[in-house]
Computed example of a mutant assay.
Amino acid sequence: MNWALFCFFTIALLACSSDSDKPKVDTEGPIYTLIFLDKTRSVNINKAFVAQKYQQAINDIIEQNIRQKGDRLEVYFIHENTSKARSLNVTVRSEMEDVSAASPTDRETAETEFAMSLSREKTQIRQRVLQQLVTQNAGSSNQETDIWASLPVIAKANETGATVKVYYLSDMIESVKGATRRDFQVKPPKDNAQADEWAKTDAAQLKKYEIGSPEITMVLPFEPNASVKENNPAVTQYWQTLFSELGAGNVAEE
């Protein structure tokens, strides 16, 4: 673990974790958040741009999705054994008591207590996710990037009936050896047309994973001036099409 980076992250999150506005309980039900952190050799978390972008992304994810009791967040590492690489699993415990029959004073007291409790949980969750972000993977599992293996994880989350939101903090360079797999390090799609063709072909064998209609966000580690060779738009197009073919409700790139 890079402790210098972790200390930087911790200071940064404490500076931005002040919740001045009281949280509002979402009556639409819990959110199930999945964060997939790329732990392969192609993503360098020690690079300042990547570290700052991913730290901010984690802050935003927690602020948006951790709102009430029952909200759940899991972190998985992306490498050659992604589906078995869960590194964090937390469920929100803070609960807003029923104040429907309470006086205005009691209602405000209950809201303040809930806000303070939820703020403490958010801070703890941020710290734990940031610890996972800076954890290094020097083992042999960093040689392959199996993003397909995230699909059964999403499908399992879909079974809970919660609103599922998925975040890939990754370069999305699928790289798995085998006749039926994709290795974008060796052979990336040459253009958007080929990316769409490959994605639709692959979706046929991957539809066995019923992922529902999750919101999916790909947070890429590339600087704005990255070359096409480094940040190949056809690779992003592949994932846009694949996730859409599998039923994703919205697929975004950051």
Rank of each mutant, 00 (worst) to 15 (best):
A15R: 10
Q185V: 12
F114V: 02
E253I: 15
T105E: 15
E80F: 06
V99G: 08
E108W: 10
L13P: 03
A48G: 10
I154P: 03
L246W: 06
Y238I: 07
W198S: 02
A4H: 13
L133Q: 01
E111F: 12
V176I: 06
A155T: 03
L133N: 00
E28N: 13
V251H: 01
D98E: 11
A162M: 02
M218W: 05
D60N: 15
I211A: 05
P30T: 08
S100N: 10
D60Y: 04
R182D: 08
F8K: 13
A115M: 11
V153C: 05
V92K: 01
T33A: 06
T160N: 06
G29M: 07
V166D: 03
F77N: 05
Q194H: 10
P152Q: 06
Y168T: 01
I58E: 00
N81H: 12
Q52P: 01
S94F: 02
A102E: 12
S94N: 09
R67V: 05
Q143G: 09
E254P: 09
Q132T: 04
E113R: 14
A110E: 07
P189E: 03
K53M: 10
L34N: 00
S213I: 04
S150D: 05
S17Y: 07
N250E: 11
P224F: 10
I125M: 02
A115N: 12
A155C: 09
Q64C: 11
I173T: 10
G247P: 04
D26A: 12
H79N: 13
K208M: 11
N158D: 11
V166S: 00
D196V: 08
S227M: 10
E254Y: 14
Y76C: 01
T201F: 09
K22V: 11
S175R: 02
L206K: 03
K200R: 14
S18N: 15
Q131D: 14
R93Q: 14
R86E: 10
T33W: 01
E97A: 09
A155P: 04
P189Y: 00
E144R: 07
L13K: 05
A85D: 03
N44Q: 12
A203Y: 02
G178C: 06
S119C: 08
M172S: 09
P224L: 08
